[in-house]
Structures are given as C-alpha cells and as structure tokens.
Amino acid sequence: MKREVPLVLTFLMTLLRFLFEMINPLLNYEISEGVMLFSRISFSVTFMYCMGLFMGLINLTRVHGNTIKRRREHWIYSVWLLIVLYGYAILGLFFGGLESEAFNWIYDAVIVPLDSTMFSMLAFFIASAAYRAFKVRNVESLLMMVVAFIVMLGNVSLGNAIWGSESWLGGFSGIKDWLLAIPNAASQRAIGIGVFLGAYAAILRVALGLEKRYLGGTDW
C-alpha cells in the first residue's frame, strides 16, 4: 500500500502516456467538441503537481527559521530573506499578480540585474579556475586550450583583425566554424548518444519499478 501501489501507479501512468504518444487516434481523441482527452489529462496532472508550489516557501522557511531560532552564524540575513520572501509572495499572490506594477517594478529593478550579474561573475571564476586547472601538461590539455583560444579569437573582431576571414582558411573565424561543425559536432553527437542510452536505461528502470528512490525514504 505504501510503496507497491505508487510503483504500480507509476507504471500505469507511464503506459497510458506512452499509448497516447504512440497511437494517433488516441492522441487526437475528443471527449467533446474541440476538447482533447490527452490535453485534459495532461492539464490535470500539471494542475496536480503545481499544487506543490508552496513547498519551496515551506522549505526555505524551515531552513532559515531554524537558523534564526538557533542563532546560527549569519542568522540576520535569514531574517531578511524571510521578510523579502513573504513580502514579495504576498504582493504577487494577493495584489494584482503578474500584471501588478509594483511586482514587475521589483522584478525589473532587482531580479533581472542580480540574476544577470551573478551569471556574469562566473567569467571571473572560470578564468581563475582555468588558470589553476588547465596547465598545459599533455597533448589533450594543449588541444583544449588551443581550440578554446581559436574559438574566442574567431568570435571577436580582434581575431578578424589579426587573421581576417578573407585570407587563407577563412582566418580564425573560418577555422572556428570548421572546429564547431566537424570535430565538435561529431564528439557532441557521440557523447549525446551515450548519454541518451544511459538516461533511457534509467527511465526504463524507474518505469518498471526497479529504481524506487524517487519515492523517498524507506522509513515511512
């Protein structure tokens, strides 16, 4: 009841969706004028798991609530996080939602620049990590560094000024295009196929009930 029924349910839902995807008349079956059975089941499943949307809020509250309660290091930031979390959620849920002017103002003024700046900072971290990790020790690391250098030069106007696209081999830009289209594409495809086979085996294991960890702990 606690583990077996969910495993059977997973298998049945997998089978149902698979049949919908593979049998065209079933996929296009209408329960009434213009209402597809498949889309209704799909929407209801989406509706079901969207009901868990407050779990993020609850988890953050539990983690940071504990930090505040135990006065752990940096607990004051947790107070700030909870104020912002609940303030913005209340604004979004009860005061106009996605069309609210205040909600969108905060999104544009804070989330967009913070998100973009956090990602841009990775340039510095990648550069410092590359300096430490990619010392040219063998042919493989030499190849990687030379190719990365050519790709970067091929993308910028400085590379075009040093070795223009009109000259021999199409310059840095031409070599970059060839590297992307032939060796890079070949290696990515081969790796992609390997990844796919592994992932597909894992999917089948879950569908057949051989892999059960997604259902959570064994103590309950």
């Binding site: 839902m13 997998t14 969706r17 995807e21 089941i41 798991y49």
Partner: peptide, 18 residues
C-alpha cells in the same frame, strides 16, 4: 506524498520513453 509523485513521474516517463 508518494501518490502524486508516482502519478506525475509516470506521466513524464511515458512522454520521455516515446
């Protein structure tokens, strides 16, 4: 909690297999 997880995982897996 395993029931909604099983239903949504199953629905997703069927799509992924196909």
């Amino acid at each position: 909690a395993r029931y909604p997880i099983a239903l949504s995982v199953g629905w997703g897996l069927g799509g992924a297999i196909a």
